[in-house]
Design a protein around this nucleic acid. Structure first.
Lengths: 289, 289
DNA sequence: GTCGGCTGTGAAGATCCTGTGACCATTTGC
DNA sequence: GCAAATGGTCACAGGATCTTCACAGCCGAC
């Protein structure tokens, strides 16, 4: 199983409202020219990707946690159909784009029926491959809605984005929407200090006017609720002249360890604006019909 | 706006529980030969379909409650892109398959980026069009899952998708269609908070305009019926500024446990088998690679 | 230690959101 | 065609939330 890994580590979490457009995909192909060109484009998009030169068993694909797989059926040989069917069965959430040489209508129909999401005929432009992968992933993601996001723990507090709420010992803190957004944002920073301006622009969506105290007020409300529910811990720390930092800090003498919020990597898997956008379209001439 | 209607009444509900392999699609094209052949195939499959010969405004498409739309961009003229973008924005759940004459890579990429799910180049085999439409629809439907019979229990309420009805102690709540779709959707979320926009787009199929109160109104109707039939429980919880959450909550003091809807594990499972399947492949020669 | 600026705090509107009943349009059943 | 059922809109009222403001306390600089 030859494979070259271009990917960096986990995609950077871009915060609660943030939208990381980076996808994780794999290309199963042997056509070195095609791979090279495609890889270059993928790099530029910042997508994590790996190239596989030989068929991998379905459960190996599972562990790659891919958004989509681009595959040339020719690499798979006679077992192609069986492999495809098995994979689609095992990973119903994986986007599968077949990108292969000339084929008959019957073959394409068969592939699509077995579970492939798209079928592109080589030779093809890498840009089109990417656009089709995006289309497939976009469709797939939509109904799953909110981030699956496992709950985030910090000290005694559990932040559950599926409920828009934080809990201490199973008891809800009764946070309002803004309060929740704030704690979510702070916790996602994993112990970093966030400046007021940044907090403001992330929560309110526009830049803060000088003298606005909204952030402070919400920090206070949040502190009150946290204090009431979890008196033996401090969570939000003020950095004078800068902003705030979130870290669970026990007040018990024997253990004064600081624990930044533990975030699962899937955090902030939202998908706004994942398209590279107009500036890329301009590379190509787009004429009307 | 010439249009010939082959379809009959309401199609399979596009709501959460809608389970039927018959799709409702529209074809926007003027190529009579293509239309004729395609229509014949669609008839044989038992899919409801209508043929449109001229562009229809996006909101007219809304009322058709389609699963997918096959469109030849050439029919739309210079406004094609704009029309496509508008439609995709308004109906994020509609599958859109562009089927048009020769095009450049740039055009295809643009179309896919704007929201089209697939792009087929004419001339093409109707069987492939159908397979791609199926693929697009399958992709979207997946997470909604087939609700195979198993009733869902939450508190005293039993939700039976096979009957499109909810019961308390064997007594029907007399839910209307929308009301049932709503309770089913909420219950399927398993205790997660669903935002209004999401509820709306899942039930109505298109994006909610600001200020629309339909969701609230149906929540009220549902609450009334639930309250009447099961007064000692609360089911639908409001999350201010966000949406609603479904969880059975007893009002009896001794046990104030929250019980999210108990869903059978099959829920949200893949939905193979809805494809017409192998017997159709046999019409075509399927050779291996 | 003093001073200016920054932050914490409480409270008072202003604003936004939801619950509700009434009303109208459309569909369905007779 | 008529009546009932259903779906959807509207305006109003009450409540929840957000924003603003003034003041007090705290921090760091000099």
């Amino acid at each position: 199983m030859t494979e070259s890994i271009t990917a960096r580590d986990e995609a950077a979490p871009s915060g609660p409202g943030g939208a990381s457009s980076a996808l994780r995909i794999a290309v199963l192909d042997r056509d070195s020219g095609f791979i090279q060109v495609l890889s270059k484009r993928l790099d530029r998009l910042g997508w994590e990707h790996r190239v596989l030169a030989s068929p991998v068993p379905a459960d190996a694909v599972v562990s790659m946690r891919l958004s989509a797989l681009v595959v040339d059926l020719a690499v798979l040989g006679p077992q192609a159909w069986e492999w495809l069917e098995r994979l689609c069965g095992a990973l119903p959430d994986l986007g599968i784009v077949v990108c292969t040489g000339p084929s008959t209508v019957a073959q394409r129909v068969r592939g699509l029926r077995l579970g492939a999401d798209d079928w592109i005929t080589k030779p093809c432009h890498p840009e089109e491959v990417i656009a089709r992968v995006q289309s497939v992933v976009r469709r797939r993601r939509r109904p799953s809605g909110r981030t699956e996001a496992k709950p985030v723990m910090a000290g005694e507090v559990e932040i559950r984005s599926d409920r828009f709420q934080a809990f201490v010992g199973g008891e809800s803190l009764d946070l309002t929407r803004r309060e929740f957004e704030l704690i979510e944002l702070l916790a996602a920073a994993e112990g970093r200090v966030l400046e007021r301006e940044e907090i403001y622009s992330r929560l309110w969506g526009y830049t803060m006017v000088r003298g606005d105290r909204s952030v402070d007020v919400f920090v206070r409300k949040l502190r009150q609720k946290l204090e009431k529910a979890s008196p033996r811990w401090r969570y939000i720390h003020t950095h004078f002249g800068i902003g705030y930092r979130f870290a669970a800090e026990s007040l018990d003498v024997d253990q004064d360890v600081e624990v930044p919020a533990a975030l699962p990597p899937e955090w902030a898997a939202g998908d706004e604006g994942q398209l590279a956008g107009p500036q890329q379209d301009r590379e190509l001439t787009t004429d009307a019909f």
